[in-house]
Amino acid sequence: MAQWLSGTVITTTHWTETLFSLRVKTEPFDFIAGQFVRLALDTADGKVQRAYSLLNSPGDTEQEFLISTVEDGLLTPLLQRLKPGDSVDISQPASGFFILDEVPDGKNLWLMATGTGIGPYLSMLGTDIPWQRFSAIVLLHSVRYAAELVYQPLISQWRQRYGAQLHYQPIVTREAKADALQQRIPELIQTGALQQACGQSLDQESQVLLCGNPQMINETRAVLERLGLRKNLRRDPGQITVEQYWK
């Protein structure tokens, strides 16, 4: 049975009408970058809860979450209306194996996300681990509209700090944007356009993390497997690590 911490909303950032971030102050707790907790609110029909990845890095007493509102959802419309000072419960302990400890070494690290799936990658990049283990890191964020390319100042800080070690590649599928690609991730990999734009290879010496839309994950994994990459399992290490973010 889950245990709960009581958190206090510090800020709510509304990126678009349906995309927002919550920053919540809690008692300190341990987690590994990439893990998730459950957010919950008490309603007239009982406690409503859902899993969300922690976006902040370990060691912070303010926990951050990137959330997309589901119009007829039981929880997300309520979370979107929270204001500073409001309460929200956070489950304990944090869970999940979508962490770099589970990822083998490689010459480059590809962090591929759609939508809110970028959250756990931001948590990972806020630690020393990826920068120490991989000589090249590609952060790939695919969204429908440019306004959904969140946390640009934070990403810019990393680009300035780590230089050519980090390549940030936005993809915007429903409108044109300078410096952004426009096709879907599987198509870009299949044609080689993604590898060319990022200046990195995708092969058996790469490590690829996939997080976001299940269709993207399934189709991208199939394309990667045709390039000779395999799913990463503890008993059989490979190159593709997947987070079933919407499961």
Rank of each mutant, 00 (worst) to 15 (best):
K247F: 04
N108K: 09
P58S: 11
A136R: 13
T69P: 00
E62F: 05
E225Y: 09
Y162W: 10
L78R: 11
S68V: 15
Q63V: 03
R159G: 04
L109P: 13
W158A: 12
I10C: 14
L22A: 15
K83Y: 00
G119L: 03
Q195Y: 05
D101P: 08
R23V: 09
Q160G: 05
N56G: 10
L202N: 02
A178S: 14
C198S: 01
D179Q: 14
E64H: 13
L19W: 01
Q190S: 14
K231S: 10
D101A: 14
G238R: 11
T114W: 02
T18Q: 06
Q244Y: 10
Q49H: 07
Q239C: 07
L22F: 14
P104V: 14
E187R: 10
I99W: 01
P153A: 05
Y121W: 05
A164D: 15
S142K: 03
S142G: 10
F29V: 05
Q169A: 05
L202C: 04
D101T: 12
V208L: 08
W131G: 09
Q244E: 11
G85S: 09
N56P: 04
S135R: 14
V48G: 00
Q160H: 07
P237S: 09
L125P: 06
W4L: 07
Q215L: 13
D105Y: 00
L41P: 07
S123M: 04
D60R: 15
K231Y: 00
L188Y: 11
L149G: 02
L188R: 11
A2E: 14
L125S: 08
L74D: 12
